[in-house]
Amino acid sequence: MVLFPPAERGDEADVNQSREAIIDWVALHILPHEAYVRAWLMRAMRRSSDVDDVIQETYCQLAELDTIGHIRNGRAYFLAAARSILLQRLRRERVVRIETVTDMETLRVMDEDPSPEQVIGARRELERVLGLIAMLPPVCRQVVELRRIHGFSQKETARRLGVTESVVENHSVRGLKAILKALESDPGDVQDAPASYERSSVHVRH
């Protein structure tokens, strides 16, 4: 795996470009759908720690990809990958929760026929990014805005805020963690998010 800018490892420029392309693709076509996929898994698995594990394993698979050119619909791909990991786990553990089966039927249809409505509008996506930044605590938010929105270097950001670079780094890490956390639960594609899980099971008479 190659992680560094091409200038520093010239002979691997092509590989780096494809790594950059994958990061870009994950940023725009996978990460925004994480809350959706989590909600779907949550209906199937119930326990959030199980969901975390499946999501984690899905990103592992994505990290092993060499190219993303063959993938048409990010969300359908994400769902299909998560589903196959879920199935492996269910088989391995002999844990059967049948809510899964129902949803898999729905999912199968979705895989074959991704409708245009399932793709988030780019503009809405960007509004959402700005919304996420706005939710950060004040100092953290300033750092993230200067670094990401205004594109200042870490050094320049530190100078402007009158703090050390390591303070800027710490706030950047904190901000990134908060935003990744928010992406877990904040469905960007509200209009076609999966129906919230409802327990229809309490039969009670008055």
Partner: peptide
């Protein structure tokens, strides 16, 4: 490797805010 890809993608997603910051007001 999976978590690192996800974190890098998170930063990249934030960078996309740069493109529209002149068009859209940042919610305060």
């Amino acid at each position: 490797r999976g978590a690192f890809l996800r974190a890098q993608a998170g930063l990249r997603l934030l960078d996309h805010g740069r493109v529209v910051s002149k068009v859209l007001p940042i919610p305060s």
